[in-house]
Design a protein around this nucleic acid. Structure first.
Lengths: 157, 157
DNA sequence: ATGCAACCTCAACCTAACTTGAGATCAAGC
DNA sequence: GCTTGATCTCAAGTTAGGTTGAGGTTGCAT
């Protein structure tokens, strides 16, 4: 009897992490962690009293979220990356290498885009046209490539 | 008399632009133009019947907004840049050169930041640690440099 | 067995940059 | 003068990534 009670205590305190401790250990706020659960990024178990308990692997999962966020991915994109893994597994070192490589592509692309903008801006500084019709910055390469909210097309002046 | 009427007509139809035409000529929606006015970025005059009428210089002003937005400035930052100009003048070619130079700085900085991240990621691909404690991406240079909403500090795993 | 910190849910609020809709008015051609 | 399209205001909705607060419950140590 004593033995069983001890086992039970050991299991719950060593491997089931309450949300406050998760917050302390990840640097997130409690509300942010709940928010991520809401978005389906983590799925803690619950105690009989309905309190969240996280597994150690959730720390790894949260680490992944934070790092990917740092790399500029939205929570939606992060969710997608994690769901690519078989059985919704928490990413391990091998997965991380694969995902990192794909993220590297995004970074490269973003850098290239900014470099193009910078070069166009250099040409533009001498020009000072401020005409949407002619501006190389406002009219990058593709005309009318419209997506999402925001300015749609270009004519002006 | 005839002369005066002609002048008046010439003035209003050539130089006072209704919001719909502004929209057509800038590619913005009517609601976006009203929104920019709301934010203080443009200040059209009004007709007796309370309709907005824009000056030709407002086309230039809107061009500036759109180009600066393309360069990654928020509407607030754009407003600040425009208010730097004496008498709230619409930016001309000389102003544009000054502002462009300052914007170029931001772009350079952003590129440098992404390059650092990319290089850290390269180191990280081989590591696969996924530990917030050690991760070079999540722990760039400065610890606890917290600003705005979002993750605050780092400990984990 | 009790006190209190930690936890729970749900709703509302926040910024940015707009859009959408309702209900009313204006301007211009015929 | 009438119709019709363009405009007007004002309120509410949208997405992302959360925060804040109210009001209520749990869990653990003493």
């Amino acid at each position: 009897m004593y033995y069983v009670r001890k086992m039970a205590k050991s299991l719950s305190s060593r491997d089931l992490i309450p949300i406050g401790e998760m917050a302390r250990r990840t640097g997130l706020t409690v509300s942010a962690i709940r928010f991520y659960e809401d978005k389906g990024l983590i799925e803690p178990v619950r105690t009989g009293g309905n309190q969240r308990r996280f597994l150690r692997s959730d720390l790894r999962r949260v680490s992944f979220i934070l790092i990917a966020q740092q790399l500029g991915l939205s929570l939606g994109e992060i969710d997608q990356e994690m769901r690519k893994l078989p059985y919704g597994r928490t990413p391990n070192a091998r997965d991380w290498r694969a995902i990192s490589a794909s993220i590297r592509g995004r970074i490269e692309a973003r850098i290239a885009e900014l470099e193009r903008t910078r070069d166009r801006l250099d040409g533009c500084i001498g020009c000072g046209c401020l005409s949407l019709e002619k501006c190389a910055i406002y009219n990058p390469d593709d005309k009318l490539a419209s997506q999402g909210p925001g300015p749609r097309q270009v004519l002006a002046q």
